[in-house]
Design a protein around this nucleic acid. Structure first.
Lengths: 156, 156
DNA sequence: CGGAGATTGTTTCCATGTAAAGTATTTTCA
DNA sequence: TGAAAATACTTTACATGGAAACAATCTCCG
């Protein structure tokens, strides 16, 4: 019984209606795809969020953690946890300047720098994997549109 | 003291390097923007995920919840919680067919249908808000690229 | 038939992310 | 000056989402 009745077959056909043309929905699907690409090629063991923070500290040593959080749209509470985890992992150092003892300035430890160097090599693989099936033109357009939509200024 | 030293001013300038050209990062930024748009116009009180599920049930009454979850890329464990919450809210009904008593088929209650009707009216506002600063051409291209990147077939 | 294996959904436990209140410090201005 | 407000981060308490193990049911095939 229940051997592929017409109802059963149709039951798997899911009509999404207008949702399928909604940017919110499409962005979620795209992000899931991007995550899959990332985890397929990444070997440094950091998740996208932590790797991004590591990268930004490497490029901007001594920056206040709040400045990084604002720029990456990470909420302060979450930033605190991310930083603590990275400090616990021996990747990041916190420095409280006597200047302003409320703030925390971040820099990489030796191990953090080493991981950053390794991740640089991975960047190319990540970019390549991320492009997926998009050709050069599509990729360029996609990046430009994402930047415009997200309200990020033109690339430097 | 600490009156806008050069260091202080530069300290807020955050160099993102290649991260800024990474699809993963840009997609996250874009999604945050889309969320902001959504919450700015939506009045039905459902979050994007729940509204999407409500919408899909409305369009496909009697569908198994697993089929919906797979299509929306929602993990089964999460789908169980979403459905339970919507049942508790009196929006959704579960029906276990004697046919196959493992499965659960979903449909909207009267209140669920009413909410769906209201959300239909909102759809236009959501679409409009979502476009943000993109013009017609950009919007069309953006949707097409998102679909291609996410691996979703051409629109119906 | 009847047990092995597949399917469907649920539970438990954990990671991620946020909101709101709390702490410490610095700035402002009456 | 010194009290009020602003800033920078942390803590707590909670919401969201996932992985893995579990339970129930169904299918397949000897």
């Amino acid at each position: 019984m229940n051997q592929f009745t017409r109802e059963e077959i149709e039951a798997e056909r899911v009509d999404l209606g207008e949702i399928e043309t909604t940017l919110g929905f499409l962005l979620r699907m795209a992000q899931l795809r991007a995550f899959a690409h990332f985890f397929r090629v990444s070997e440094v063991g950091l998740k996208p969020g932590a790797l991004t923070v590591l990268w930004v500290i490497a490029l901007n040593p001594g920056l206040r953690q709040g400045a990084i959080a604002r720029r990456l749209m990470i909420k302060p509470a979450h930033m605190t946890k991310l930083v603590r985890a990275m400090v616990d992992d021996g990747l990041v150092e916190r420095y409280v300047p006597p200047n302003d003892r409320r703030s925390v300035r971040l820099s990489l430890t030796k191990a953090g720098k080493a991981l950053y160097e390794r991740s640089c090599g991975e960047m190319h693989a990540i970019h390549r994997a991320e492009r997926g099936t998009l050709n050069d033109r599509e990729y360029t357009d996609f990046v430009a549109l994402l930047r415009k939509f997200a309200g990020i200024g033109a690339p430097p």
